Amino acid sequence: MAAGGDHGSPDSYRSPLASRYASPEMCFVFSDRYKFRTWRQLWLWLAEAEQTLGLPITDEQIQEMKSNLENIDFKMAAEEEKRLRHDVMAHVHTFGHCCPKAAGIIHLGATSCYVGDNTDLIILRNALDLLLPKLARVISRLADFAKERASLPTLGFTHFQPAQLTTVGKRCCLWIQDLCMDLQNLKRVRDDLRFRGVKGTTGTQASFLQLFEGDDHKVEQLDKMVTEKAGFKRAFIITGQTYTRKVDIEVLSVLASLGASVHKICTDIRLLANLKEMEEPFEKQQIGSSAMPYKRNPMRSERCCSLARHLMTLVMDPLQTASVQWFERTLDDSANRRICLAEAFLTADTILNTLQNISEGLVVYPKVIERRIRQELPFMATENIIMAMVKAGGSRQDCHEKIRVLSQQAASVVKQEGGDNDLIERIQVDAYFSPIHSQLDHLLDPSSFTGRASQQVQRFLEEEVYPLLKPYESVMKVKAELCL
């Protein structure tokens, strides 16, 4: 049975990233139509530049190519590739079939990587351009969430054990800070992308030097003109047959890092959902379990974690691919890159769409948070109580021993009897502590235990987050809708 299948058929496997999760716009960027249309555009740009620099290419040939950029006979191309065992030459023939007058000058002087690699770089750039505003929107939604809850005390956790208090907004800023680093890295790697350009079979530009009869300047002009037509500021000066596969490492490393950030955020949300302090959106008709109707599973956060793990592992592909590119190139890269580049971007696209949807509907339960604080705060307040007693004339050592005994009794009630923490009640009825009984409410005010959390939130948002989001103001209103 021949390899390949009808990918629109229910009898043929289709990647869930495309069929179930990723956005239509990201799927289109990695589609065959987008790819092969870009090949034709690159052939047109090459012909236009070659004509401008004096090669015998007519206006009629150029116009014929322009008129057929979208006229792609995919069936013919597939048949040609089956016959020739070469995808680029299959599309040269297919393009030439609908451009008979231009057929002889299509791909003039070029090698397969002229269309293959340059198209990949265009796709990487455009895919990054799709991700950047999506990530900015996630940051914006979380920034709104953090600002609104900047002063809401909550129990902090280290080692997932109760620690000092923080605020809900401050905790959210930990998430935002990681995503801001990801946004900066995505922008950097996007701006650092260079075009492969017009380089020939081993990167020496020998074929173009021959076409222009040894004119170095025209060869350099050709490279520059096509690079500018493709919208790049610069091209690699040095290439082998391909652009260095280190570029793929750079791009997928940034995406993998984004995956790590999203995994951490969504894990926190899942843990908070278990504590009943916070939940992701839950639709009115949504079913959490087929057997347990009360369940409210954090399905979206779980999906993000599941896909983020996949995204983090994909960076190993370009690392290994770059390491086995012998001399000017081997074909070890080809099949692998067809999979890992598309999957990385479709996965990143999915987790950003999902995280935006989550961040637009996060639900906080202040009463649950308050109750958990009441359970733990008495123990945390013991040092403040000791200091207040010393100020009232008591002995630190005597007070410490009193607190120690009462704390152990209260802990026994919590752990052995399943009761509430009654340390404060014990202190309130103990005559030894009568000098500070009137101060206990103040000493137990949760806001006095959150330090500068709310001020940190305000400063972080104003100095770091809002300036970073400013270039994306025009796209901030787009909502994230999930079908599944």
Score class of each variant (00 low, 15 high):
residue 291 A to G: 02
residue 182 D to A: 03
residue 113 C to P: 05
residue 382 T to L: 04
residue 345 F to G: 07
residue 420 D to V: 04
residue 131 L to F: 13
residue 22 A to M: 14
residue 37 R to A: 12
residue 240 G to F: 06
residue 479 K to C: 13
residue 411 A to I: 08
residue 430 D to K: 04
residue 110 A to V: 04
residue 389 M to E: 06
residue 358 I to G: 05
residue 355 L to S: 08
residue 12 S to E: 15
residue 229 K to T: 06
residue 262 V to Y: 02
residue 449 F to I: 03
residue 469 L to T: 15
residue 344 A to G: 15
residue 212 F to E: 07
residue 109 G to M: 00
residue 197 G to N: 00
residue 351 I to Y: 01
residue 291 A to K: 00
residue 63 Q to I: 11
residue 130 L to S: 13
residue 105 I to A: 12
residue 400 H to G: 03
residue 109 G to T: 02
residue 22 A to R: 10
residue 32 D to Q: 14
residue 354 T to V: 15
residue 312 M to T: 09
residue 189 V to E: 09
residue 456 Q to L: 14
residue 226 V to A: 04
residue 334 S to C: 06
residue 410 A to C: 07
residue 463 E to Y: 11
residue 230 A to W: 03
residue 472 Y to D: 11
residue 465 V to L: 07
residue 317 D to E: 05
residue 47 A to G: 09
residue 315 V to E: 05
residue 240 G to S: 08
residue 475 V to T: 14
residue 99 C to L: 11
residue 169 G to L: 01
residue 147 K to Y: 13
residue 13 Y to L: 14
residue 343 E to A: 09
residue 206 A to G: 15
residue 346 L to Q: 11
residue 41 Q to P: 01
residue 311 L to A: 06
residue 334 S to W: 02
residue 121 L to T: 10
residue 96 G to V: 11
residue 329 R to G: 03
residue 97 H to M: 14
residue 109 G to W: 00
residue 65 M to R: 04
residue 288 G to Y: 02
residue 226 V to E: 02
residue 466 Y to V: 13
residue 105 I to H: 13
residue 145 F to Q: 07
residue 359 S to A: 08
residue 265 I to A: 13
residue 140 S to E: 15
residue 31 S to F: 01
residue 8 G to D: 15
residue 154 T to V: 09
residue 333 D to W: 01
residue 87 D to K: 00
residue 454 S to I: 10
residue 103 A to K: 14
residue 175 W to S: 05
residue 466 Y to P: 07
residue 90 A to R: 00
residue 382 T to M: 12
residue 33 R to T: 10
residue 183 L to Y: 11
residue 247 V to L: 14
residue 169 G to E: 02
residue 121 L to N: 09
residue 162 P to N: 06
residue 450 T to F: 06
residue 116 G to V: 15
residue 167 T to K: 02
residue 442 H to E: 14
residue 34 Y to R: 06
residue 55 L to Q: 15
residue 132 L to P: 12
residue 311 L to M: 14
residue 364 V to Y: 03
residue 103 A to E: 09
residue 277 E to C: 06
residue 408 Q to E: 07
residue 453 A to M: 02
residue 317 D to M: 08
residue 232 F to P: 01
residue 86 H to T: 01
residue 435 P to Q: 11
residue 298 P to F: 03
residue 461 L to S: 04
residue 68 N to G: 11
residue 423 L to G: 03
residue 254 V to I: 12
residue 316 M to I: 13
residue 304 C to E: 06
residue 426 R to K: 11
residue 331 L to F: 00
residue 160 F to W: 05
residue 72 I to W: 14
residue 208 F to S: 04
residue 111 T to D: 00
